[in-house]
């Protein structure tokens, strides 16, 4: 799954959001890494709607502007969780790895070799 897709789906976990809501929530969740342009967002929403990962739940006109709200489907949530677990597994390989080099460099301590 591409990073923008991951954060679009993650943005919709709590509640349905409209286009700009998704853009700003994705930016916030990714700590500013994913800054979607509007054209890119709608291309992604078209694709995700086609794959039934998100769906339109509401349409409103607010201050003369048309807004359509999107929510995560059960399939979308499943795909998001599967991707999160995959990344967590991959992260564990590094975060839970005993780093022999770091301990070997500590002054006054003998290096510890992994078992």
């Amino acid at each position: 799954m591409r990073e923008p897709t991951y954060f679009i789906l993650a943005a919709l976990q709590d509640q349905p959001l409209h286009g700009y809501g998704i853009m700003s929530r994705a930016e916030e969740l990714s700590r500013g890494r994913v800054k979607l342009a509007t054209g890119t967002l709608y291309a992604a929403l078209d694709r995700l709607t086609g794959e039934r990962l998100v769906r339109v739940v509401d349409e409103q006109v607010v201050n003369g502007r048309a807004r359509r709200y999107y929510e995560l489907t059960a399939t979308g949530l499943e795909a998001l969780r599967a991707e999160a677990e995959r990344m967590a597994e991959a992260a564990k390989l590094v975060t839970e790895h005993p780093n022999p080099r770091r301990s070997a460099r500590r002054p006054g301590q003998p290096g510890v070799m992994p078992a």
Binding site: H18, G19, Y20, K35, Y42, R65, A66, R68
Partner: peptide, 15 residues
Amino acid sequence: AEILATLLDAAESGH
């Protein structure tokens, strides 16, 4: 109409 609204929302936002 929806894309236009999002474009304008984004342009008027803080970022």
